[in-house]
Design a protein around this nucleic acid. Structure first.
Lengths: 207, 207
DNA sequence: ATTAATAGCTAATTCCAATTAGCCAAGGAG
DNA sequence: CTCCTTGGCTAATTGGAATTAGCTATTAAT
């Protein structure tokens, strides 16, 4: 039952691992437990499967974005939480969010697939940048602006703060995508990064 | 003449734009100005062309690494230069290095090709991480350690400093790879990032 | 109970792209 | 001058992978 959904999942997994062109419809079918021609009862062509995945991706983006935003989509609301939280709390939060993005099958596969297909189509390129950079930065900018206004953090340009916070995290994430065996080691770096960032923008007390 | 070299260039360009599997040998040939079967006078197969590119990439890596290292491969030697340089000088330096990596055809195509093929083969994944992350970080760590020892900068963990310096730059670079029309806008961010970073780790004088 | 739609299968078919065969001109070496 | 190597060409050949044809079992609706 719901073979249609199973096909999307199987295809997404394969596309994210090998890229669209390197996946045979027969492979997708096998993963689903049927034969290749049966796929065509559900999708008109291989391309259509890809397109359906893209649709899915766009639809689910709000869901992912919500996750990215800790628990809401209003930086102002979140700022209070952060203000209250300790450095350790911040680390805890960052690490668990990182782990979620790294291990959640859906999220990870979307990310890998977009990575691999990003140059095929300007639309995909734009989607990629929006999803993994611009939106994340714009949310975090708002958050940092808030925290600066509150006097919790000290910084002049929230956008740059966001870039400096987000880029290292994203880099570590993609490293784990490539070499999962390094996760432990890189998680340590992540933690140190967040700690250092917090300290740095906390104010002037050095230590 | 030197068709052999022209083939590699044409193939690299195409592979970086569309990925190995989406490029037909006929396209490569056309770009070179010959017919597909003639390619086989130079390379045994399409795969061999790819492999030759990889070889080239590995061989030329030292060259690229040297560039990355400003002008040498010894952080200690470079540290002096940085110590002397002004904040503006640092920005100038960073921006021009960024521009080089962004526009140098060879460098850019390698980067894109590795990006697109990174999950096909663990060897490529490792190469990617080494080339664009680990080596850069390890060099920069050395540099920052030096500058901290000199008292030019103030920071506790050079490795984290390197991560925080390098990751934003790399992120901006890949954004330009995807959407070249945003170069101007992103260059401004780059500049602000470097400036902010320098200020931040300069010492305690806030402003 | 019959019918019609659904979703699977095997066996074609089709298409396309890599590679091979086999021919030919140019040019350097003996 | 002839020979042989080099690098190009056109015209097959091959192989593989997407898609189509056409059959069948199941199930839900009339």
């Amino acid at each position: 039952m719901d073979t249609k959904k199973k096909i999307l999942d199987a295809a997404l997994t394969l596309f994210s691992e090998k890229g669209y062109a390197n996946v045979f419809v027969a492979e997708i079918a096998e993963k689903v437990g049927i034969r290749a021609p049966s796929l065509y009862k559900h999708y008109k062509s291989k391309r259509m499967i890809f397109d359906a995945i893209l649709e899915e991706m766009k639809r689910s983006y709000d869901g992912q974005a919500a996750m990215l935003r800790i628990d809401g989509n209003d930086p102002a609301a979140d700022a209070g939480k952060f203000a209250a939280v300790s450095e350790d709390g911040l680390v805890e939060m960052g690490v668990s969010l990182f782990r979620f993005f790294l291990h959640d099958g859906y999220t990870q596969k979307f990310r890998k697939m977009l990575t691999v297909e990003q140059f095929h189509d300007p639309e995909l390129a734009a989607l990629f940048t929006r999803q993994y950079v611009d939106d994340a930065l714009s949310y975090q900018s708002g958050l940092f602006a808030m925290l600066c206004a509150n006097g919790v953090l000290k910084g002049e340009d929230p956008q740059i703060m966001a870039l400096q916070f987000h880029a290292p995290i994203y880099m570590l994430l993609t490293m784990c995508d490539r070499e999962p065996e390094r996760e432990a080691e890189l998680t340590v770096l992540l933690e140190q990064h967040i700690r250092q960032f917090a300290k740095m923008y906390k104010g002037d007390e050095n230590r």
